[in-house]
């Protein structure tokens, strides 16, 4: 798979795919969607989609697609070659979501959770297939979160499509299996060919799953006290966050205690009203120095006589 666009700039997302088969424009098609690399604390998450004419469902079954997780790397690579060589009947597309994009999205001011991000990515792929002129009629999606809610969400956006969201869709529908193979192959390649912008060379970072000892060792060994981790790491994962809290210098952001303060405010409000007598108290008269104009307060300007 040619991921050179992603390899030259692995901070940003990238979409790669086949041309649309002529037959997929004429005949009604089914489309499958699956993802790879959702759990790991390292590397990109990849969304894959495959589509082909409904009339050729049986032909697809014979190609031997199965859930990408039960296949080994070699088998997946072989099956992906098959997908690539079936351009007359099978179209495919993948989107690589860079770990930097995942971190940045999840750590925005208004948090964007991984489920919403996944849903939006799937929606984007369906839209792109339709925009390219594929005659999509049926859509099969491996679920993220609650299948019924996800299905309703997709139905709302694509009322004309017949949408099925299911658990383990990749082992039930060959078109989803094919999509999962594309996604997994792309994820493996992106991880294998990762170039660290930070000028470090890493021998072994393991599978990327937080429980893997090699991954844990990588996270501990390559922790920079100021910057934290290279962009390869998803900062929004609790594994990464906990390590930073423990081993990196503390960083305070202006929105850090927003939640905290809201809690306190709520507590104060619910604690009841002020005592009536506070209204009759005389104002404190101690501070007679004139106050600075709010112009200076708003600009954080102060007189400094010492540091």
């Amino acid at each position: 798979m040619d991921l050179s666009a992603f390899e030259t700039d692995n901070s940003c997302n990238c979409i790669v795919g086949s041309d649309i088969p002529e037959i997929a424009k004429r005949e009604p098609c089914w489309l499958g969607i699956d993802e790879a690399g959702r759990g790991p604390v390292l590397g990109p998450m990849v969304y894959g989609t495959c589509y082909s004419p409904i009339s050729l469902k049986d032909q697809l079954k014979e190609m031997g697609f199965a859930d990408s997780k039960v296949l080994n790397e070699e088998q997946r690579e072989k099956l992906f070659e098959k997908i690539k060589n079936s351009t007359e009947v099978l179209g495919w597309m993948i989107e690589v979501l860079s770990p930097n994009f995942i971190s940045n999205s999840m750590l925005r001011r208004s948090k964007y959770n991984l489920n919403a991000l996944s849903h939006d990515c799937a929606i984007g792929l369906i839209k792109k297939a339709l925009d390219k002129g594929a005659n999509i009629k049926e859509v099969y999606v491996d679920t993220v979160g609650d299948p019924a809610k996800y299905q309703a969400k997709l139905k709302g956006i694509f009322p004309d499509l017949d949408i099925t969201v299911a658990k383990k869709a990749d082992s039930i529908y060959p078109i989803v299996s094919a999509a999962s193979i594309c996604a997994k192959v792309a994820r493996d390649n992106a991880v294998k060919n990762w170039t660290f912008k930070e000028g470090i060379t890493v021998e072994n970072f393991g599978s990327g799953y937080p429980g893997d000892p090699a991954t844990k060792k990588f996270l501990t060994d390559y922790l920079d006290p100021v910057f934290g981790f290279p962009q390869f790491v998803r900062f929004s994962w609790s594994t990464a966050d906990l390590l930073l809290q423990k081993n990196a210098v503390s960083v305070k952001w202006e929105d850090d205690d927003d939640d905290d303060q809201n809690d306190k405010k709520r507590k104060k409000d619910s604690a009841g009203t002020h005592s009536l007598f506070t209204f009759y108290k005389s104002e404190e008269t101690g501070n007679k120095r004139s106050k600075k104009h709010s112009f200076f307060d708003e600009r954080c300007l102060k007189n400094m006589t010492h540091f």
Binding site: S11, N100, S103, N104, M106, L107, R108, K197, E198, G199, I200, D224, V226, F227, G228, F229, P230, Q231, V233, R234, F235, S236, A240, L244, V251, W253
Partner: peptide
């Protein structure tokens, strides 16, 4: 230079974007 400058990008116009500790 290694960790921050490599994340700086020129967006549209004079606006720059970068990332620090995973935040945009």
């Amino acid at each position: 230079a290694d960790y921050f400058d490599t994340s700086v990008r020129h967006d549209q116009g004079t606006v720059l974007s970068a990332t620090f500790r995973g935040r945009p």
